[in-house]
Structures are given as C-alpha cells and as structure tokens.
Computed example of a mutant assay.
Amino acid sequence: MGAQWKAKHKADASAAKGRIFTKLAKEIMVAARNGADPDMNSKLRVAVEAAKKASMPKDTLERAIKKGAGLLDGPANYETVVYEGFAPHQVPVIVECLTDNKNRSAQSIRVLFRKGQLGSSGSVSWDFKYLGEIVAHAVTPDADLEVAAIEAGAQDFEEGEEGDCIFLTEPTDLDAVSKALPAFGFNVTSARLVYRPNNPVTLDDAARAEVEAFLEAIDADDDVQHVYVGLAG
C-alpha cells in the first residue's frame, strides 16, 4: 500500500492530523483547478470525500476549494515532483512532493536523504508497478467486489482495512473505473495513481525501526505528499 511502514501510534496525534489536513487540502486545491463544484468535477468530489473521511473541518475544506479554484487570494500553483532513492539498508523509496517551490523541495529532500541515498530518475521506479488505486466501500446490500471490478474495468481487486475495498487499474483507466463503480453499489473515497513495490525487502526489527524513522522524517516534510517504499509488511 506504500504506507504500511507508518507507525501505529503517533506520539503527537494533533500534529499528525495537522499534516494529514495539509496534504488533503493540497489535493483539493489541485483538483479544484478544474472547477469548484464537486458534482461537476469527479477528482474534486473524491478529494472532498477523503477530506470528510479524515474529519477535516468544514471551513478548512471550503477554503481549500476556493483557493484552488482561484476564488481566494489567487490560484494555488502546486506541481508534482518525484524523487527516488534508498532508505537505510538499501530499501527502495519513491517520494512524491506537491510543491509551490521546487528549489525548496529539492533542498529539503537532499537533507532528508543524508541517512540514505538519493538516486536519479528511474533508479528505483523500475522495481515498482505504477497503477491506479481506488478505495471504495459498498453502499448497497448486493454490491459484489469481484463483479464490480470486472464490470467497471479494473485489473484486480482486494479487501482493504476497515471494510474498504481496493480496485487496481491501469493508470489510464483510473478515472473511468472510478466513475463506473457507483453503478455497482460502491462509493469511491480515494482514487489516485500509486507505486507498488515488486520485490519488497524484509528486515529484522532493529533495521526496520531505522528505516521507519527515516521514512517518518520524510513524511513529516510539508512538501511531501506521498511516500512509497519497497518494505515488506
């Protein structure tokens, strides 16, 4: 899932929630570039659903939509930048930033990778699958995970945590499958392109703790949106 390394218990829950809200707000702002009405903008609708699931305050959510749509303080100029490298013990890592200042992000990432090894583009992504990942949950009694996956055009499916269902797609099919799933009784709460490792590394407890500390530091950076790691669960 790309986030299985995250600690089960955060020492500072409020700070962790604040970081989650910041990341979700950025995704809302980017999605809102194509329109401020979630009913007419499927990407914004999914981003809003994810924010609501995380209990984002209504004022924060509405401000992010207005900011992204250019209705408040001018448009939000975020762009995606991807970095590749290795955590300690040669664990492959892909870091996805959503930033309004690429120079700042590059400097931060270089510092954060001092305990690992920052690589060039393509240095580890060859060992990951790049695909669409849709998280949804059944909202009708007759909703069938396998039938929905086949009929909506997903490549694969699996059961997630807390009753979630996960549909995997080709990158180009992500939007079409997301739009098709409600007809088969599923409400989409997240739909995005992700990296999944082909050969996750298994470590002992001490080495794993070192890698997790490295990843936590990266994930806490304001410009970092997603961290994907080739680490066995």
Rank of each mutant, 00 (worst) to 15 (best):
S42I: 06
A51S: 10
R114I: 13
L174T: 06
T140K: 09
L71V: 09
P197I: 08
Q4W: 10
Y78A: 06
D223W: 02
S125L: 07
F186Y: 15
R45A: 04
V135G: 07
V224K: 03
F157N: 11
A31L: 05
I166D: 01
K26A: 05
E62H: 13
G18Y: 04
V30E: 00
S121W: 08
L61I: 12
F167Y: 06
L44N: 00
E62R: 12
V82C: 10
A31E: 05
L181G: 01
Q4H: 14
L174F: 06
Y195H: 13
A191E: 11
E161W: 01
V81D: 01
L181N: 01
A36F: 11
C97V: 01
A31F: 05
K6D: 08
H226M: 09
I134S: 05
Q225K: 11
F157V: 14
N187P: 04
Y195E: 02
K67P: 07
N101F: 01
I166R: 00
V188K: 03
G132P: 06
N199L: 09
A152V: 09
L118I: 13
V48H: 00
L71R: 12
S120A: 12
K52P: 00
D156V: 03
E62N: 15
L44C: 00
D156I: 04
T172R: 09
A143W: 08
V48T: 02
I109W: 02
E158N: 03
R110E: 13
S121N: 11
Q155C: 10
A15K: 15
A138S: 15
D37A: 14
S42T: 11
G68Y: 05
G122R: 08
E170H: 11
D100I: 04
P92T: 08
D204Y: 10
P141A: 13
E84R: 02
Y130M: 11
K52V: 15
P141S: 11
T189Y: 03
V227C: 06
A191S: 15
D73P: 07
E49S: 11
R192A: 11
A213G: 12
A87Q: 03
A149T: 08
G132M: 06
K10M: 13
I109Y: 02
N101M: 01
V81F: 04
E162T: 07
K129T: 12
T189F: 04
I94T: 04
Y83V: 05
G160P: 00
L174E: 03
I94H: 02
A31M: 06
M1Y: 09
M29D: 01
L24Y: 00
P57D: 10
S125W: 03
K8A: 09
S121E: 13
T80I: 12
W5Y: 10
R208Y: 07
K58P: 04
I109T: 04
Q155S: 14
V201I: 15
A149L: 11
S120N: 12
G230T: 02
A76L: 08
D173Y: 06
D144Q: 08
I65Q: 12
R104D: 07
R192P: 01
F128P: 02
A7M: 13
H226L: 08
K23I: 13
D223C: 06
D73V: 05
G233S: 12
A69E: 03
S55G: 10
A47E: 00
S178R: 07
T80E: 15
E216Y: 05
K67Y: 08
P88G: 12
A143L: 11
N101I: 02
S178D: 04
P171D: 01
